[in-house]
Amino acid sequence: MTARCEAASPADTSSSGTPSEADEPGPAALLSAAECVLFDFDGPLCRLFAGRPAAGVAARLAEGLSALGCDPEVLAARTDDPLALLQEVAKHHGDGPVTARAEWLLTAEETQAAAGATPTEHALELIGALDAGGWKQAVTTNNSPVAVARFLRRHHASAPAAEHIHGRTSDPALLKPDPHCLVRALESTGTAAAAAVMIGDSPADCLAAKAVGVPFIGYAVNERKRRALEDVGARCSVRSLRGLLETARQRVRSREPGAGPPGAGSRG
């Protein structure tokens, strides 16, 4: 049975109460021990399709691919999930022009959506506090890196830097749960897997992190999401980023003049 850890904060003090869970490091401990934070994008950082519903994106994607002769059964199978639709197209059509067109269309939709995406509560503040506290940061996502960059520029976020945005490539087979984007992020930041932590909201995020030995903090805004993460082995989850933000701010305060040496994981 997986343990449930909840980040404590002034507004969220719930935690597991069983003795077996006491040995599991909580989210604050995982963050404090890390040198680098790997963020999933849609969920932990923003609601990408808040103003541009995913089902509509998938429908437009299907419409565009239909004109290219994409198998109608493939298009009908995943009409509400654009990423799943892309994967189905790739499985059926391989790396040919139909798959390339599907990826191009989805990138265009995501980039438009990023212009109006709603930031997740406390996410932008957390990015800033992590940067000030000395953590390295990267984005590891199944979405287009172009969309991520547009979102971060729109909110004047200087971190994660562009070279640490690792998103979808031209090969849909490398989408999470394949750990490809995590491996690239660890390489680009010069971080060992055990010295990083990933914040993600999907089973695919958790499985990708487990595949390379990166500790994982689930972002689960409801019980359904928490149970889905637990089902694939996630041992810690948070309902809000507020507790993690406070942990980061504590390190920032500790780095101020007269506060003593910086905490573990700060940049040299």
Rank of each mutant, 00 (worst) to 15 (best):
W135C: 11
A100C: 02
H180F: 11
T120Y: 00
G96R: 13
Q112T: 09
K91I: 07
P172H: 04
V183G: 12
K176H: 04
P119I: 04
E121D: 15
Q137H: 04
V89N: 02
W104R: 13
L86E: 09
R168G: 00
L106P: 12
Q112I: 06
P160H: 00
A129M: 03
E163Y: 11
P160D: 00
L175A: 02
I165K: 03
L130Q: 07
R153K: 14
N142S: 15
A123F: 01
V89T: 10
A90D: 01
L105I: 07
L106V: 11
P119N: 06
L106D: 05
V89P: 02
Q137P: 06
D171F: 12
A100H: 05
A138Y: 03
T118G: 09
L175T: 00
A173I: 13
E110Q: 09
V139K: 03
I127L: 14
T120G: 00
R101H: 06
P97Y: 04
G133C: 02
V89Q: 06
G134V: 08
L105S: 03
H92L: 02
A132T: 15
A115S: 08
F151C: 04
R154P: 14
A173G: 15
A161H: 09
G167S: 11
R154A: 15
N143P: 10
R150V: 14
A162R: 15
P179F: 03
A132Q: 15
V146L: 12
L130G: 00
D178A: 12
G167N: 04
H164G: 01
P82V: 10
I127A: 01
N142P: 14
P160F: 01
A147D: 02
V183K: 14
G96F: 08
L152A: 09
S144M: 08
A129R: 01
L106W: 06
T141L: 06
S144A: 14
V139I: 13
T120L: 01
S170I: 12
T118V: 14
L126T: 05
T99L: 11
V148H: 02
T169I: 09
V139F: 06
P172Y: 03
V148C: 04
A90S: 11
D178F: 06
